[in-house]
Write a protein that binds this DNA or RNA. Structure first.
Lengths: 163, 163
DNA sequence: AAGATAAGTTGCGAATCGCTACTTACTTGC
DNA sequence: GCAAGTAAGTAGCGATTCGCAACTTATCTT
């Protein structure tokens, strides 16, 4: 029951990054999420796999459930067992997690991680997470502009440009 | 000069996610990074924009510099001024940051953030960050498998499949 | 009923956060 | 040159959180 007395991260310029960090920005949150993606669903599984302290784990799981990232269900056949499963909202964090992991592989460890995430169709590793334009072109940092809403082109009269 | 007395996050199954979080997993790190992407480069700019305590900011900036994510340079024309700029390694976190921000927009705030990141070519907003196969196909969670290295197809004899 | 197991909770010392005030090094205006 | 201002960072201190270990509660198993 962690009352949130700490001031929420400031909404600098209406960015939703602070909101995302409010839910996922604490230590262990992303690792718990990664474990959940890897078919771990129970308290003791998380605990032994991550080596996290039990009270911290309990706190994080509660928070993730509160934020709708995990779902908490008591198993019918053994009511001691609680199952934590990713919600759609939690599953939607996959690209973020992969991007962070790929960055770590490239710039920190230098080695490919185990297990590897592969395309089920051909069992080849997935490609790098990249920023792309609306039409799928890969964009580099130089091709990106931070723009105010009024300067953004909306969905009108760009059919020619896209074609 | 924060000595890291806290045990590093366990390397669960050789994943590089803990390594990435070691560098970026602390409170404020991603917000400082976002500010750096938005052309903020000085201590006072970060401080007033984020409302972060000065000692914490100093600590985070040092850590980000230590990890090679930011570069620290004293300005020649005013040697009081220190410029913090993204390194290539830091800039490589853009997809991660965008993915996290997009997730926040979709699942937390529900609104498009300001400023918007647009394609410089047509000023249209960028597309969503997605997991893709080696050939660019968008992959859903169901099409992904966590696989051991020995079960991964490498770059041989898949020219037919790709074509 | 006795023992094992799953999921927490509690207590407590250590580390970190956040606020405010202070310091240090430079630059500017007179 | 000297007072005032500015940029970056440090110090002190109370409040919060982390992390370890032991304990509790509810539920199976035998």
């Amino acid at each position: 029951m962690g009352g949130k007395l700490r001031e929420p991260l400031r909404d600098l310029a209406e960015c939703s990054l602070p909101a995302a960090l409010e839910a996922m920005g604490e230590r262990w949150s992303f690792l718990i999420l990664r474990a959940a993606f890897n078919e771990l669903h129970h308290f003791e599984e998380f605990q032994s796999e991550l080596g996290i302290a039990r009270n911290i784990l309990a706190n994080r799981l509660s928070r993730l459930v509160e934020h709708g990232i995990l779902m908490r269900t008591a198993m019918p056949e053994d009511r001691r067992k609680i199952e934590y499963r990713l919600t759609d909202k939690g599953a939607a964090l996959l690209p973020t997690m992969i991007a962070l992991r790929q960055w770590g592989e490239r710039w920190e460890t230098g080695i490919a991680a185990t297990p590897v995430l592969v395309d089920a169709r051909d069992r080849r590793p997935i490609g790098p997470i990249e920023v792309r334009a609306h039409d799928g072109r890969v964009l580099t940092k130089q091709e990106l502009i931070w723009s105010l809403p009024e300067d953004v082109a909306d969905d009108a009269a760009e059919v020619r440009a896209a074609e």
